[in-house]
Design a protein around this nucleic acid. Structure first.
Length: 545
RNA sequence: GCGCCCAUAGCUCAAUUGGAUAGAGCAUUAGUCUUCGGAACUAAGGGUUGCAGGUUCGAUUCCUGCUGGGCGCACCA
């Protein structure tokens, strides 16, 4: 629903409240939004229920009183012609029924301005950095990373669409313990290939790719001490290729090693020290994160003099602010949720609002094949990879499926369903609607214009379809406030359904010319909304299937 | 032991962040096609929202206590 009418109505409601002697300031919050069901009108407001107690009247009576004042206000307002009816319904909801003329005008705007009409600028150029995947370059990407990649990229697309200046970043843990172990894993495999009998430790990287790296390292005569870096770079090339094939492009690849070499970690720790946020105990250096709502203090320098993971991470996030970003969004796996409070504490210790750092926990995905779980075990290198999923079901289905459930919920990913080209598979249901529309538009003999009269669209299915198209921006609004793009997939399915229902009942072509033109405009608007939604998801828009 | 997340129809999930008769898809059953793409549409059955309390006009949503599941609780990353 268009933001303007919502905004204007809220102003009117507030004025009406004043007229009634009701104090809207004392109401914590009330909403004016889409009702739970379309039979309750186009916009629904709960303010009467919120005020009932204060007014010592029943919600319905308060509602009637408000409507009385509101109707007078409406008469004098520019919205006069757009609101067909206002009613108190249910427990005391004030429901607004929009006039068809409003729907026609809005649809007309979509036809005229294209996807710009679906867009609302909410970002105003605010600089957002969204960091995701950031998998250690010690192995190829798993499905957990794949889901993060899909969700993160989609979120970034939406931020971009909503007028934020968004950048995508991948943070590289390119040194430290894991890289040392990686290098040593390669070294052992090299020795093994020379016929030496070796004992391969449990905690070493066992994946098959280690053998490939060992072979190449031998050919290129890489020195033992450089094996870690060599292997990491080798794997990083694979990861980049995988992400590229998945349609995810990062703006920045940020290196932990570079950060350490730059000396900025010492500087930031120095700043904390100067502000008495650090102290020594048991030979280690601790950060007083408890001063900023963490449940215990955290070590930043171990007693052996080396950094914990937190030290460079504190600095890394300060770097993000120093680079000018105003809102930091991190996508992490569920095993990192305990890490949120300490990182936020560090942000606060530098005087930033902890709210400017948002951490989205992306739950794991369970892959099913033949009705059975495909088990994952990183240690043995027997995990199902992003590559395998991509090869098996393709980019479109993968991206749609990984985003399809609430990000905070576990996701069951059925490879067999994702491969199916039937109604069981939601991505095909949506793409089919798009292809169907494309087909009709190809065959159309007449063309609609910007001045096409849309008011001939009076059928139930036509109006329902227009309403659904106009919900595009409020859907994105929900995504923005929840930082969860799964709503896009639901919206697209609902929109496609509304189209299929319309299509089933009414013909577009070969009707009275005025009707054909108007319906062509209607399906063009539908196509635009579907295309824009699919684009945000990173899913293709096939005109033929 | 402490902390976080989850529990909704046979299955996979929603419920606009406290709103209206808890909704979709799949599966099941019964229907709709000579025309724009049937990869579609219509209808039916299916629920004590894990259990027990509490808060209020109103609870799937918030609070408390249980039960069952996942994950954290490092001078690992």
């Amino acid at each position: 629903m268009n933001k303007d009418i919502q905004y204007l109505l809220i102003q009117l409601i507030k004025e009406a409240l004043k007229d009634c002697g009701l104090d809207h300031e004392s109401v914590e919050k009330f909403y004016l939004d889409l009702p739970t069901d379309s039979r309750f009108g186009d916009l629904s407001c709960n303010v009467a229920m919120r005020l009932a107690k204060l007014a010592k009247k029943s919600p319905r009576d308060v509602g009637l009183e408000i409507i009385c004042a509101l109707t007078k206000r409406l008469e004098k307002s520019e919205l006069k012609n757009y609101i067909k009816e206002v009613k108190v319904e249910g427990a005391g909801f004030i429901n607004f029924y929009l006039a068809e003329i409003y729907l026609y005008q809005q649809l007309g705007a979509v036809i005229k301005h294209g996807k710009e009409a679906l867009r609302v600028d909410l970002g105003h150029g605010k600089k957002v950095l969204i960091e995701f995947v950031s998998a250690n370059p010690t192995g190829t990407l798993s499905v957990a990373h794949a889901r993060q990649a899909a969700v993160g990229d989609c979120l970034a697309n939406i931020f971009d669409f909503l007028g934020f200046a968004v950048k995508r970043e991948y943070y590289l843990n390119d040194e430290g313990n894991q890289i040392n172990i990686l290098g040593d894993s390669v070294r052992l495999r090299m020795k093994e290939s020379e016929g030496e009998k070796i004992e391969f430790p449990e905690n070493y990287y066992q994946g098959p790719y280690i053998f490939d790296i060992a072979r190449e390292a031998k050919d290129k005569q890489i020195k033992f001490e450089e094996l870690g870096d060599f292997a990491a770079n080798f794997i990083l090339d694979i990861i980049r290729k995988e992400l590229d094939d998945f349609g995810v492009k990062f703006d920045y690849w940020s290196s932990q090693k570079e950060l350490r070499v730059s000396g900025r970690i010492e500087k930031d720790l120095g700043f904390l020290k100067k502000n008495s946020r650090l102290y020594e105990q048991d030979g280690a250096l601790w950060f007083k994160s408890t001063e900023f709502a963490d449940d215990k203090d955290r070590v930043v320098i171990k007693s052996d003099g080396s950094y914990t993971y937190l030290a460079p991470d504190i600095c890394y996030h300060q770097e993000k602010y120093r680079r000018g970003f105003q809102w930091l969004i991190n996508l992490w796996g569920p095993d990192h949720h305990g890490y949120i409070s300490r990182l936020k504490a560090s942000v606060a210790a530098f005087g930033h609002n902890p709210e400017s750092l948002s951490v989205v926990i992306v739950q794991l995905a369970t892959i099913f094949r033949d009705g059975k779980i495909v088990h994952m075990s990183t240690r043995k290198g027997q995990y199902i990879t992003l590559r395998e999923v991509l090869d098996e079901v393709g980019v479109d289905a993968s991206r749609f499926f990984f985003v399809m459930r609430r990000t905070s919920s576990h996701l069951d990913f059925d490879l067999d369903v994702a491969k199916k080209q039937s109604s069981e598979n939601p991505v095909f249901y949506v793409q089919y609607a798009y292809a169907r529309i494309s087909s009709i538009l190809r065959q159309a003999q007449v063309k609609f214009g910007k001045d096409t009269d849309l008011s001939v669209l009076k059928e139930k299915e036509e109006l329902a379809l227009i309403r659904k198209i106009l919900q595009f921006s409020s859907m994105l609004n929900v995504v923005l406030s929840t930082l969860d793009p799964f709503m896009v997939t639901i919206y697209l399915q609902e929109l496609s359904e509304a189209f299929h229902k319309f299509y089933d009942q009414h013909r577009v072509l070969g009707q009275d010319e005025a009707i054909t033109k108007a319906r062509l405009a209607l399906i063009e608007g539908t196509s635009l909304a579907i295309a824009t939604g699919l684009e945000l998801l990173g899913v293709s828009r096939p005109e033929k299937m």
